[in-house]
Amino acid sequence: MSQTAAPVRTLSRPIIELDHVNKWYGAMHVLRDVSLTVAEGERVVVCGPSGSGKSTTIRCINRLESHQEGRIVVDGTELTDDLKALDTIRREVGMVFQSFNLFPHLTVLENCTLAPIWVRKTPKAEAEELAMEFLRRVKIPEQAKKYPGQLSGGQQQRVAIARALCMKPKIMLFDEPTSALDPEMIKEVLDTMIELAESGMTMVCVTHEMGFARQVADRVVFMDHGEVVESGTPTEMFEHPQTGRLKLFLSQILRGH
C-alpha cells in the first residue's frame, strides 16, 4: 500500500519520525496508528478530506497537540511531557498557520524579531538585520514598520513565513497556509513556499493546492479518518491512485479545476 518515495534528490537521515501514533479527543479516535518518516530536506504534502486528522498530525510534530500512544522523534529528540525537550524542538520547528496568527499589537518587524531576541537571545540589532533579510526574501521589506492589520492576507501570510524563518528552523510546518486567502493572493504565498522548498528546507505541508504538490513535493501522504491511507510521489498518487478513498478525494477536489 504505502510506497517509499522515489528520491528525486539524495535524501539523508530521517529528521521527523512518527511511529504508530494514536490520539483521542475524549472517546473519539482521531489519529490511528499514524506512522510517517520525513528525511532531512524532504518536502512532504499531507492531504485529505476535512476531519481526516492531517492538521492534528502536523500539530503533533511541535506538540501543539499531544499524542497518547506511539513515539514522535524530531531531530533526534523524543516528544514527551519534558518541557526542556519541547523547548529544544520548538526552536527547530517553524510553523505557519491557516489564520496567520501574527501578533496584531506588534509591527511586522517586531513580529519577526520577538522570538530570536527572547528565545534565541540574539542581540536586537542582529535580529533586526536577520528579519529584514527574510522580509526581503518574502518580498515585503517595505512593510516592516506597519502593523499586521494594515496588510493584505497574502502579505500577512508571507510575514508569518518570515517570522518562522527568523528562528532559523530546520523544519517548517505549514497548516493549510492558503485556505484563508482570497484567490488572487494564493499565488504569492505559494511562490514564497516554492522558493523556500528550492532552498532545501525540510517542509511538511497540509494543503489542498495540488499544483503546489506536483511542483515541489517529494512525497504526498493521503489521510482519511485519522489514518494514512496511501503515500507516494505526486505522479504515483495523482496519476495512479490505488485506493477508492483517494480516487474519490481526488475527484472531489479536482472538480472545478
Binding site: 501543539l64 496568527n101 520577538l114
Partner: peptide, 11 residues
C-alpha cells in the same frame, strides 16, 4: 491562535 503562535515560536 495567538497562544499557539507563541508556543510554536518556542516562547
Amino acid at each position: 491562535g495567538q497562544y499557539e503562535a507563541a508556543d510554536a515560536l518556542g516562547l
